[in-house]
Design a protein around this nucleic acid. Structure first.
Length: 862
RNA sequence: GCCGAAGUGGCGGAAUAGGCAGACGCGCACGACUCAAAAUCGUGUUCCCUACGGGAAUGAGGGUUCGAUUCCCUCCUUCGGCACCA
């Protein structure tokens, strides 16, 4: 056995390898960096990737999620963009007029935080970063049409972001409300519900746990579209995204039931009733189990419920206030801990169960959340585990109203736990004997009957509740699109008139680490006049969530310089909707849900058409560091694409990105693995550029080569259609190996060889656009390969003459027989049974059964 | 707890319709070239066995089938989402 080399040796070896540029190691004629630059400049000069309306061709709008201009292009950007580019290029060759634009999601916190640190204005920094990233992006050799670039932080863009806000406001879809909202103490701003993540409820951007604050904020009425957002008709989106959105919206069917507060308990000795208390005698609760109403033996209010103070009796005030204070001190995480023991206190008040007039006590407990449903519940301890635990602890009555059909179980259940299974209703007056199953809503016969009855009696109604909340738009930050609203003491809130748009961000702002928005602190900016009366008024100083900017950017690409409207109708009519959208799945319940909502809102306003903005969605995975961890500067495992491009050229980086993992899965980066892609690109170069030996190949060799070419074309075409990029590259590698063999056999230079070369370069062109263009030119073909039609499979050529068929005996492969491809079942059977190996295993016995899977396999059973 | 995705060699991964498991590549080993190394080219490379030949193997166990990575059931692990949601 060989010893492993000592530690010194590999270090030296590495050093040596590093010092020689990979590209010049063996083949002086292959200089990818210079060659790539040459073609990029030519494509640019020729406007090869300009996409303009062409009614003679079918259109294809390919969109990949736009980046935030952080300042440096990351390998993750390459991973997202270059396969999307390859797909767009493939569609172009298929005959589509393809739009594949790129832009920048340029508002956002990092630039503002950096400004607070070093005083550099976010505008300056952002546009510098964009310059740099655009230059870096151009090294990818992607077919981006830079004439259509949009930058969300540019006034000519955010003018229309503001305009859209006003359209939503005018349509009644934007409103202002005081409520308890999520606040990130690090980012010093509120966040939308979707932007709070994980068990510890942290900020999606910076990871800091959020807190609750009561603030007056702007919201979009996204919940109006909850039901429609649950439907994905006519769109080809990954099931995982649809599931994530469905779970996020979390529709639950049930009933709203009204309980009267027992009047003698109402606010004893309280002279001044607060606003809204005239309706106090009735309180609504949401329940998914109206069939268990007869088992509601108490009510529980959330400690924050506004009516708690009103209903609490004098003798219970101290305990209630103490409990409220203690609940307020706890974070939502502490309160949300599932295994926490239930606690609560009695308010002294009673409610009346509307179905049986039972007088039931009202408690407060922190297991009831103000943020869901009505902030109050009817408690049915017999049939709800949480209510059961609570009732046991505080010795509240437990009345079973659903009886399992098997009696024994019932007896046992009554003692130990709540019963949540199916059965028949009992103790429920006229409903006794009604069957109940475990379905939700009307599908459950018990629930359906009770729903009808409570509606008749006027004590409740069928109702649907969602976890989904309206979209909180306000951000207390400078670097975003201003919310174009003006407040006047007399006329309230009014939109900025259209002719005053955009409301520009002031440039002369001071950066103070106080956490307050510089817009608020600016001495003059917010002072303006009321659009209604012309008197002094103030501007809204909050800006918009940047997800607002990205909700419509796909529309701005259509006509980024258009100044009469957010987009030009002619462009819209030709290009929309987006045909293929690619990007990360982390946006499933954020951007991808916001943009669907936004589109539906615009549709109802009459600005856009159709029910969905993006017809097909595909998600790529993530490139991890070589250590398998998420890439981060602090871990030092970041892979820089620029370094790779300098070493290998863009084609190799593109090819490796498409090859090394299943695109939708992602995988850890492998610095050695990229050598394989580099080798492939170089070997293709060598194959095409080495002098051609004389043609000596047999007809059979040529026929076999042609067969492989067309089989590969069929496979590559199919894989492009289905986004299976890794097998595109492996198929191309295989065909290259075959071509080397065919060359060895003297096929080079033949007509079949020339066809193989042509098809090979065309298949390669979407993946490695530069070398394909170069070799295409060297073959003397007309410029450009990227405008060539995708080759057509010659099905006849793909047919095999003879096939090798494995023969199994009792499930194990024992031999392989070669038969003509068109052999009949009988012929295949005969050939298989004639095999010596098979005869050996038969040992003279007759086979019990012989199964012939035509063209595939023979299975002999003894 | 609920919902979803995924478990295949040393590694990334492949396997149209239930039909030869491990394509392609990395790595490794050996050989050619070289004074030598790198690069390049060639050969081999799932594991086990006294290696001719045979056996086992796609997270584990069971089932359906002539035949299961693929279909069904139970379980385990990892990742992601949601969660006292009424």
């Amino acid at each position: 056995m060989k010893e492993k080399p000592s530690a010194i040796v590999p270090v030296q070896a590495e050093k040596k390898a590093e010092s020689i540029p990979a590209s010049s190691r063996h083949d002086k004629s292959f200089q990818p960096q210079a060659m790539e630059k040459k073609w990029q400049e030519k494509w640019d000069a020729d406007q090869l990737y300009r996409s303009v309306i062409d009614e003679s061709k079918p259109k294809h709008y390919a969109l990949t999620m736009l980046p935030y201009p952080s300042g440096d292009l990351h390998i993750g950007h390459w991973y997202a963009m270059t396969p999307s580019d390859a797909r767009a290029r493939y569609m172009r060759m298929k005959g589509y007029n393809v739009l594949f634009p790129m832009g920048f999601d340029a508002f956002g916190l990092p630039a503002e935080n950096a400004a607070i640190k070093d005083g550099v204005h976010p505008m300056k920094r952002t546009f510098q970063n964009i310059e740099r990233m655009r230059t870096q992006m151009k090294t990818m050799g992607a077919m981006f049409d830079w004439e259509r670039e949009m930058i969300s932080a540019a006034p000519e863009y955010y003018k229309w972001t503001e305009w859209f806000f006003i359209q939503l406001y005018k349509a009644g879809l934007a409103y202002r409300k005081m409520s308890a909202v999520d606040w990130c103490p690090n980012c010093n701003t509120t966040l939308a519900r979707e932007q709070v993540w994980g068990d510890d409820r942290h900020c999606e951007r910076c990871g800091t746990p959020v807190i609750k604050k009561n603030l007056d904020q702007w919201f979009f009425k996204a919940t109006k579209y909850a039901d429609e957002l649950l439907r994905f008709d006519g769109i080809d989106w990954p099931q995982t995204v649809k599931t994530l959105q469905t779970n996020w919206i979390d529709r639950s069917e049930g009933a709203e039931v009204q309980f009267r507060i027992a009047s003698n308990q109402l606010s004893v000795g309280n002279e001044q009733l607060p606003v809204g208390s005239e309706q106090l005698s009735v309180i609504s609760v949401f329940t998914t189990r109206p069939d268990t109403l007869w088992g509601a033996t108490f009510m529980v209010f959330s400690p924050e419920h506004p009516l708690v103070d009103v209903i609490t009796t004098e003798e219970n005030k101290t305990a209630v206030n103490e409990y409220k204070a203690q609940a307020a001190r706890q974070t939502e995480i502490q309160r949300g801990a599932v295994d926490k023991e239930k606690t609560g206190v009695f308010t002294g008040a009673y409610a009346v169960n509307p179905v049986n007039q039972a007088r039931i006590p009202i408690w407060i407990a922190d297991y009831v959340m103000m943020s869901y449903g009505m902030g109050a519940i009817m408690a049915v301890p017999a049939h709800d585990e949480r209510d059961f635990a609570f009732a046991k602890k505080y010795e509240l009555p437990i009345v079973f109203v659903i009886q399992p059909e098997v009696k024994d179980e019932a007896d046992e259940a009554e003692v130990n736990a709540a019963y949540t299974g199916s059965g028949v209703m009992v103790n429920s007056s006229q409903f006794n004997g009604t069957k109940v199953n475990t379905e939700k809503g009307r599908k459950n016969p018990g629930i359906a009957k009770v729903l009808d009855w409570i509606a008749e009696q006027g004590i409740g109604k069928e109702s649907v509740n969602y976890r989904y909340r309206d979209w909180l738009i306000s951000r207390q930050r400078y670097w975003g699109a201003p919310i174009p609203m003006i407040h006047c003491d007399v006329h309230g809130w009014n939109p900025v008139p259209d002719d005053q748009l955009p409301v520009l961000l002031p440039e002369d702002v001071e950066w103070k680490p106080t956490g307050e928005s510089p817009l608020k602190l600016h001495p003059t900016w917010k002072h303006t006049t009321c659009p209604v009366c012309g008197e002094a008024a103030v501007r809204e100083t909050d800006t918009m969530d940047t997800f607002m900017c990205s909700s419509w950017y796909h529309l701005r690409y259509l006509s980024p310089k258009y100044d009469k409207a957010p987009f030009d109708d002619a462009e819209y009519n030709y290009w929309m909707p987006v045909d293929t959208y690619t990007g990360g799945i982390e946006h499933a319940t954020m951007h991808l849900l916001y943009t669907r909502f936004f589109h539906k809102a615009l549709r109802d306003i009459g600005i856009v058409e159709g029910n969905e903005p993006m017809m097909q969605l595909r998600n790529q995975g993530m490139v991890l560091g070589e250590d398998g961890d998420k890439m981060s500067k602090s871990k030092g495992n970041v892979i820089a694409p620029d370094v790779l491009v300098n070493k290998y050229g863009a084609d190799t980086v593109r090819a490796y990105i498409m090859f090394f993992a299943r695109w939708e899965m992602g995988a850890p980066w492998d610095s050695q693995g990229i050598e394989g892609a580099a080798r492939w690109v170089r070997r293709v170069w060598t194959l095409f550029t080495d002098p051609t030996p004389p043609i000596t190949a047999t007809e059979e060799t040529k026929k076999n080569l042609r067969r492989r070419v067309h089989q590969t074309l069929r496979k590559v075409t199919r894989d492009f259609e289905s986004f299976e990029f890794n097998t595109i590259i492996s198929s191309l590698m295989e065909l290259m190996n075959e071509m080397y063999k065919a060359r060895e056999a003297g096929a080079a230079g033949s007509d079949v060889w020339k066809e193989a070369q042509e098809i090979y370069l065309k298949m390669m062109a979407p993946v490695t656009p530069h070398i394909s263009e170069e070799l295409w030119a060297q073959l003397g073909k007309p410029y450009s390969i990227h405008t060539q039609p995708w080759p057509v499979v010659d099905e006849a050529a793909t047919k095999e003459d003879s096939i090798e068929i494995p023969v199994q005996v009792n499930g194990k492969v024992r031999d392989k027989v070669i038969v003509p491809a068109d052999a009949s079942e009988d012929e295949i059977r005969a050939a298989a049974l004639a095999s010596e190996a098979v005869q050996k295993y038969l040992e003279g016995r007759d086979p019990k059964k012989v199964i012939v899977a035509k063209g595939r396999l023979v299975s002999v059973v003894v």
